[in-house]
Amino acid sequence: MIRILIAKPGLDGHDKGAKAVALALRDAGMEVIYTGRRQGVDNILNAAIAEAVDVIGLSTLSGVHLEVAEELMQKIKGKNLTDIHVVIGGVIPKKDIPKLESLGVSRVFPIGSTFEEIAQGIKEIIDR
């Protein structure tokens, strides 16, 4: 069973999307852990290690996705945890998708992504 940590970095409190995706992935048969709001990157990474997840799913709406992804990917590489995949969703301009991918983010799910696309996308990463 795929284990995924849904995480909400930064101060932004809009967690409707993060929780809806958490419920959708649970219905899609995944084991879902949700961090709650206002998580620093270190907290997120520690939770991912403690819960032995396969995937970290970041949800950002306030425009901090590039900064957060950069910090998280650096720390993942620094700790040699590259078997943890990172996906990111929320309010993300399409022009930022290549940048996120070049940082090592496996998949980006901008606004408008369906639950099915998200679940399918995550399964593909794990099967790869």
Partner: peptide, 21 residues
């Protein structure tokens, strides 16, 4: 958001959020 949540602008936790909304 830092003002709404009681953090000063120089708090390292909020560096991406000063003056944002």
């Amino acid at each position: 958001l830092p003002t709404q949540m009681g953090y000063d602008s120089d708090n390292p936790m909020v560096k991406n959020d000063v003056g944002r909304v």
